[in-house]
Structure formats: C-alpha cells, structure tokens
C-alpha cells in the first residue's frame, strides 16, 4: 500500500480544515489518515478480514476496525473498564470475545461489501460494553456505543451470543450517521427494520450463506433451552419466532392489515418492523444468491440516499424501488423484485 509522506499532524489539520478552498485537500487528508491509521499503530498490512472481496474505490483495505471492549462489571455506569483493544489477544471472557469478534464481522460487511469505513464512513472507533447491570435482559445502542447484558439465565442467555444482535446494535449507529430515522412510530419501525437487515446480513456474510440457506432469524441462541422459541424475530415469517407459556407468543405482524397501533414501545417499533422485514427477505429470496449483494445494496443505497428522517413505510418502500432503478435500471429484475416484496406485505399496491 502507498505510505503517505505527509506528516500526520499536517494531515490532521488539513482533514479538519473548514475553509472551502481546502475542501479537496481536506477530503484527501481524511482519506490518508484513514489509510495511515495502521501505520501509526506500528504495522502496515492488509488485515485478513478485508481480503478476498471487492473494496469500493476510495476506501483502502487497510481501514480496519478500531475496537474497544469495556466491562461494566455488573454496574450500570458507562462505559466501565477497558478489557480488550484492537489487536489484543482473546481474554477468555466469552462475552468480551464475542463482542470483539462481532464488531469485526460487522465492520467487515460494511467495508468489504458497501465500501464504508465503519458506521460513520470515517472509520470511527467501535466501542462495546459487556456485563452491563445484573441479570440484564437487553442490548442497546446508547447513541455512541453498544451495551450488552448477561441475561437473567432463565429466559435469556447473554446478548453477545448472537452475531445478528451485535450487527443490529451497530446498525443503529449506522442509521444515526445516515438517514437519522426518528425512533417513533413507522420511522422507528424502519430503524428497527434496517438494524435487523444489517444484523442478518452480517451473519449471512460471515457464514457465507446464500439467501435461500439463511435462517432469517434475529437473535438465534439468545433464549435458554427452557423457552419454546427459536429466536427473537423471524424476518421471513414474522410472528413465528416463539410461542411460550412465560413470555407469550411472538407478536410481530407480517402484513399491513395486521399493523399494530399502540403507544407502547415508542409506537410498536419492535413489532411493526416485521412488515418491512418480510418485504426484504422476500426480495432477497426472489433475487437469489447472496442477500448482501443485490437486495443488500439496494437497502444500503436507500439508507444512505435521500431519505427523510420521518419516512413512513410507503416512503421507504418507494425509496427502495428508486434505489433499485438507480443501481440496476428502471424495469430491471431487481426493481421488480423490490416492488413485489412490498406489494406482498401490503405496503405498495
């Protein structure tokens, strides 16, 4: 790789220059800083994770992840203590190591497939906190980092167990830096949907699964064996993920006619996401092959394209068909597959 001769302090100054006369130089300096990052860390190599797949022009394969894992040690103060940083060996704490690997896999999908360096496109550091709270049954994105609970041990196991959950949380950061979908009502359900799409694609890409082979499940392995259920959600068959005496039945609708109006859960953001989830899974299955390629690209283009933060399902569906037409041509197989996916769940006619 080309190693820059411009001193890092100068690059840093240029990269943050706001004078429009330096706009081009600032962009170039930001890219150079991105490329040079491993150099400043004392190595100059292409990480294994970035090999073997096409990388978009302008983003160099050396833009590897910068991960930091923290341990909250059962408290709810964030972030807790640093327990593993980039290039450090596994700690032997399974939650720490799963979080580290999961962040790497998510970074790899974004960079290899979509040419995006981390969630902000500027190779932002990725922070995750594990062992948050006591018997805490949740994972969340707090606006700048991911946080994972250990689960109560009766219904939920630890939340780092599922790669799709790690990808889901990180994708909330991606949405924050791109479309900025408001976390309420239909735009909130779309934020949940986008996180499920990325979470599922991270898992499929890591396993090398084609759309037809994928489980389309979110959070597989999170329930203990005591629970009657396969996962938290099914993107392909919403409403079928679990049916249990203690936690009840999976409430997700799979079609607009069953759309849930509620004030709970920010207006049902984790419920109604089933509808767009199924539209995506149907589109990917209709197109066949790896879901991250054609269907994934169309959804990524939509998220990073002109999309209002208050978009409802119809606006988002139209944006995906526009994105399909832009990338693959009007009337293309891809555009037709997207339209038919949304039509099957009752969002488009």
């Amino acid at each position: 790789m080309p190693c820059s001769v411009v001193p890092p302090y100068l690059l840093a100054r240029l990269a943050t220059a706001e004078d429009p006369r330096y706009a081009v130089a600032a962009g170039a300096a930001r890219r150079a800083l991105l490329i040079d990052e491993p150099l400043r860390r004392g190595r100059c190599e292409t990480p294994a994770s970035a090999q073997g797949a096409p990388t978009a022009p302008g983003v160099r394969a050396a833009a590897g992840p910068h991960r930091t894992i923290y341990d909250a040690r059962g408290e709810t103060e964030l972030p807790g203590e640093v327990v593993r940083q980039e290039n450090e060996a596994p700690t032997g704490d399974v939650a720490v190591d799963e979080a580290y690997e999961g962040l790497g896999q998510t970074h790899r999908l974004l960079l290899d497939v979509y040419g995006r360096a981390s969630i902000d496109g500027r190779n932002m550091r990725l922070d995750a906190v594990v062992h948050y709270g006591v018997r805490y049954d949740n994972a969340f994105w707090d606006g700048s980092r991911m946080v994972f609970g250990d689960g109560d041990g009766e219904v939920f196991d630890r939340f780092t167990r599922s790669l799709s959950v790690i990808g889901h949380e990180l994708a909330h950061g991606l949405t924050q830096f791109t479309a900025g979908l408001i976390y309420e009502g239909q735009s909130g359900a779309l934020s949940e949907h986008v996180s499920d799409v990325i979470g599922s694609l991270v898992e499929q890409y890591a396993r090398g699964e084609m759309a037809a082979e994928a489980s389309w499940l979110i959070g597989e392995g999170l329930f203990t064996p005591l629970v009657e259920g396969r996962a938290l959600r099914s993107m392909l068959e919403p409403g079928s993920a679990y049916d249990d005496d203690v936690i009840g039945k999976d409430p997700q609708p799979a079609h607009m006619r069953d759309y849930i109006r509620t004030t709970d859960d920010n207006g049902g953001v984790h419920l109604n996401s089933g509808i767009p989830n199924r539209a995506f899974a149907l589109t990917a299955l209709a197109l066949g092959g790896p879901a991250w390629e054609r269907a994934g690209h169309i959804w990524y283009d939509t998220l990073t394209g002109p999309l209002s933060p208050t978009s409802d399902f119809v606006a988002f569906a139209e944006a995906t068909t526009d994105a399909a037409a832009r990338r693959f041509g009007a009337g293309s197989e891809e555009e037709r597959a997207v339209r038919s996916g949304w039509s099957e769940v009752g969002v488009l006619p």
């Binding site: 049954d137 949740n138 994972a139 969340f140 939920f156 939340f159 959950v165 889901h168 949380e169 959070g219 999170l222 938290l232 959600r233 936690i247 009840g248 409430p251 997700q252 709970d264 859960d265 920010n266 953001v269 984790h270 419920l271």
Partner: peptide, 12 residues
C-alpha cells in the same frame, strides 16, 4: 408497572 421496548421487544 409495564415495561416495553428493549431489543427483544418483549413486554413485562
């Protein structure tokens, strides 16, 4: 006390 939301979307 009703708890909704959360990654799992399961109410308690």
């Amino acid at each position: 006390v009703r708890r909704t939301g959360g990654m799992a979307g399961i109410s308690r």
